[in-house]
Design a binder for these strands. Structure first.
Lengths: 192, 192, 192, 192
DNA sequence: AATGAATGAGATTTCATTCAT
DNA sequence: GATGAATGAAATCTCATTCAT
């Protein structure tokens, strides 16, 4: 009974996640979400104040999951190489399973364009601080495992995020290994 | 007359580019474009079949510019390091000047979510083949300058694009150099 | 059981009266009434056919109370001055205690705007005849106590009702006495 | 041409006034207003930010008209009796011609229940100060024409407003004269 | 009798597009 | 060519009412 309502909320969020991930905020109509999870339009408004609220809650949940998972990888005592490998694998797998928003990764430091301003506001309020914390932890991890003074570690974090997203979006089977190799060893080259 | 109308068309595209770049497709209203370039709303429909058409034409132009510029860099006979440096600098500068869409770079291989399906269709038709060509040329350049067999060059292209975008989006002054250093040399590390 | 259900019905009406009096028909949601009297929304529909029905029953009860009270004042054998004084005091006190709808008094002869037409219909059916009876009794009282032939007594009734409402709405401490003085003596004046 | 748009705005306000006056805020749908003045629903939103905005603008205009007219009557140099007579006649006629909101008169000091809170807020901001000014002027007029110290003049103002509204609402042909007679002379009576 | 989750009709509002001038 | 007022389809959101438990 009480499970019922939790599960109803979850049903809605599940449907919303799937649709928002595939089509983005504007292209998903509240009706679409309702239809996908088999409830009436009004029901969604029992659990979520607005479409924006639904979107942001789905987003927060997704970001929280990602953050928890990455944090788990950082905490597992692996060395740098294996840690990066795990992170890249994680992005690859998550997306392939369509478990998370592909576009989630793009929000940190990315542009928040093409969202209504109230959504942007909510995202700022709810999500950015969580991401900042993760960034700090990753940088802390770097500082323990990378001794080169050439590499600005905040920049490195941003590059890593970009590459993770590229992996997630790519359909290549080898991109994860390529990324790892490039990051660890650079590209071996001959000048012309 | 025809100059007049070309220039009128350009005025509209210029305004549209600026707005779409900053706010995305949905957040820009046809009214906004009209106001910014000082024409009546109806005038826009003399030059563009629809908002979707305007968007895609702006997009194509932007992508064409980027492709031409990258192609120019590739053709200038620089070595690998300098070429990458130029490319990264190009992204950094383009964005800082707000000359191009920040989000343009994300479209290839990225998600086309949150665009109306007719826009997505047009983009597939108009843009993807152009990008494919550029990708081929970049990979061709790699194959002449990188001898390592570890690195899948199509993957590398994707990683490079992701990093370019990260540079474009970042507010860090050093990210370009960090990216270059990582790509060329990898990160020097000590295992725990 | 029947006491129980009568009392349940009363609880609901009490809450409804309070809310309708304060905020009007539309601004009160069935949810609000349910919450205020601590029953489930569905329960209200066990006792009342609809929100309109609840409203009209609350209204009828309120009007009946007012009519009974005014009738009591008329019947108590006071002279005209004291009777008017009592009536004005009654309105003043009723409102101050928030015992009755402030807006109840406005319904007779007033506009029934901003109520759904089914409510208006019910009010016509249920309330207007009761008010007509009271009007007749008040006029009968006037005819026994006022000998002036200048004053149309039906008009006087309407003026009295308006003044009673003004007293009820006012926050002035002296308005009751002012009203009484004006009605009994008129305003003494000097022309300019 | 420019007259056209002014007149379109006026058409809408005219229709809105008529409907709001007859049926109140909630009972009037934006569609009703559109249909009555023969425009599309969307057109109304070209001229008015929202239904609430339309309502308040109609209200302000009506109140301003009433205030100007009453002010004109006060300034015309009539003596007290004739002034009151004019005011009562004005209310009677205005309503009969359906020129103004019947309910306008009720707003000062009345309850603002059964309006959405944003409308209430706008009314407070836009209307109450104008009414206060008029009240001051009426009281100033009283102080020059009434020498009796029995009558609190602010109370008298409120009573007068109530009576004016009663006149406006009444269908009696003689109520204006009755009211005037009562106010000037009081009711002549014999106690029992 | 009581519940409260679910419903869906109906309201307001937006905005790409049209077309008479 | 240019205009911008007008349109109306389509979106979000509300809330009285129902009904399975």
């Amino acid at each position: 009974m009480t499970d019922q309502s939790v599960s109803r909320e979850n049903q809605i969020m599940e449907a919303a996640r799937e649709l928002f991930a595939k089509k983005g905020y504007y292209e998903v109509k509240v009706d679409d979400v309702a239809k996908l999870c088999g409830v009436a339009k009004g029901t969604i408004y029992l659990y979520f104040k607005s479409k924006a609220d639904l979107f942001v809650r789905v987003l927060v949940e997704g970001v929280d999951d990602i953050i928890d998972d990455i944090r788990g990888i950082l905490a597992s005592g692996r060395d740098l190489t294996r840690t990066l490998s795990c992170i890249f694998e994680y992005y690859e797998d998550s997306i392939r399973k369509d478990k998370y928003f592909r576009r989630f990764g793009e929000i940190p430091r990315g542009l928040l364009g093409d969202l209504p301003s109230d959504v942007v506001y909510k995202i700022h309020k709810e999500i950015f601080s969580r991401i900042q914390e993760l960034e700090d932890e990753v940088i802390d991890f770097f500082s323990k495992h990378i001794k080169s003074s050439d590499v600005n570690q905040s920049d490195l974090y941003q590059i890593l995020v970009a590459i993770s997203i590229a992996i997630a979006k790519s359909e290549s089977d080898t991109i994860k290994d390529t990324a790892l190799s490039v990051i660890l060893n650079g590209i071996k080259k001959e000048a012309i």
